[in-house]
Design a protein around this nucleic acid. Structure first.
Lengths: 235, 235
DNA sequence: TAGTGGTCTAGACCACGGT
DNA sequence: CCGTGGTCTAGACCACTAG
């Protein structure tokens, strides 16, 4: 049920419940999802709230709606873009994979007169006892906003979880630029790319909080094993 | 003003009006946008409708909202992804550029027993009398859904405009996969890429109508002159 | 304290799809 | 015809920001 006294908005609570039910596999590809009216009654709320929750699922690519027919479940949801910008660890956990992270480099650097904590990590999954790295992430985090952030062990801890829990900073937006890149041997070795004549996908950008303040500069190089899919609406 | 008798929803009408006002440059970077209450009064509608219209602007990256403060305009809006999936021609026109299109190849092909109209185009802009090609698009359009589509001159006509106006088919979603690619000399020549050791960005995917039916298979190769930016919300 | 955006309610009418 | 999602109204209370 929904908790009207919670600080979490009702439509977010409902969204999470519905998302979890899909994740648990309660619906098959193309199955009818409960109608808006049914959800209204079941959760004792109004249609506006139900629609807001469903619209979040639509944006995630988990369901789609057809007027006059109903709401349907996307079996194979689009792996909604931004691999790793909105929760690498969570995404993998939802697929019953174990996320691993290795710190390749960690230091304090000065950029344009400001101090940043530079963190380079290889990130991937552990499957059948062996590790497959999928991305190499380089992050620059401003020290003045995150004092002593270099004390954490980011091979164990999630950067965003530390930001949220220890510094009360919530990543909200990512602005990134995609480009193809030809990488050097070090990178190829980490990502286990054997083919010499291969280009990799790179994303450079910045992460902002809810007030549009920059909280991280990032650069991610993706392994060719990763599929970079996205879905968009044409207006 | 808004036309209550139009088939176009009020919030879409309002969205278009507001978008156009931003495009005309009525607001500078970071300017306060009219408040929801002000828009409500000005356009004689309710807050729900105003919020729906503004939420479209937010998704376009044209404005952002801050609780307690107001709505602000993004001067340099994120060039919202999907270059060419949601209106290459319109995008360029909004920047006072002239779109050009050259047909490189055009034929009927059979894929998995079905007939498709294959169309390969170079697309770009004309500036100061010279043409700069920015993408090479390959489209496969199913003939059974678009009979005689091969009769149109796509160096002059927009594919989506023909689909909409002549066949009443409205592209609604695009599902694409991005990958880096190393291209051959023909492509490099068309896109005027001189550097040999360069990788280009490619997008492969399909375009669907509002009923999630596939209406086009596409593959686009982007010139390095194009910036591929996108913005996403972290949840 | 006044104004802003964020959420929520309780209705209404509509276009559409299937029976 | 009924049930679906799509749109719209007219309120309400809240958290947050700034003067």
């Amino acid at each position: 049920m929904l908790d009207k006294n919670s600080v979490v908005p009702l439509y977010i609570q409902l969204y999470r419940i519905l998302k979890e039910s899909i994740r648990r596999g309660e619906y098959k590809e193309g199955d009818r999802f409960p109608s808006e009216t049914a959800l209204m009654k079941q959760y004792q709320t109004t249609r506006g709230t139900v629609r807001k929750a469903i619209s979040e699922l639509v944006m995630d690519g988990l369901v789609y709606q057809v007027q006059g027919k109903g709401t349907y479940v996307h079996v194979r949801p689009i792996q909604y873009s931004m691999w790793n910008f909105s929760g690498f660890t969570d995404y993998l956990r939802s697929r019953n994979e174990v996320a691993v992270s290795k710190v390749l480099e960690q230091e304090i650097v000065i950029l344009k007169g400001l101090s940043y904590f530079k963190l380079v990590r290889a990130r991937g999954v552990k499957r059948d006892g062996s590790v497959h790295y999928l991305t190499i992430d380089t992050s620059f985090v401003p020290i003045d906003r995150f004092p002593q952030i270099d004390q954490y062990d980011f091979s164990q801890e999630s950067l965003y979880r530390i930001m949220r829990e220890k510094y009360r900073v919530h990543p909200k937006y990512a602005e990134i630029q995609l480009s193809p890149t030809i990488v050097d041997d070090d990178v190829r070795q980490v990502l286990q790319v054997t083919d010499e004549a291969v280009a990799l996908l790179k994303a450079d950008g910045r992460v902002l909080n809810e007030k549009n303040e920059e909280i991280e500069k990032v650069s991610v190089i993706y392994s060719p094993k990763m599929e970079f899919k996205l879905m968009t609406t044409i207006t």
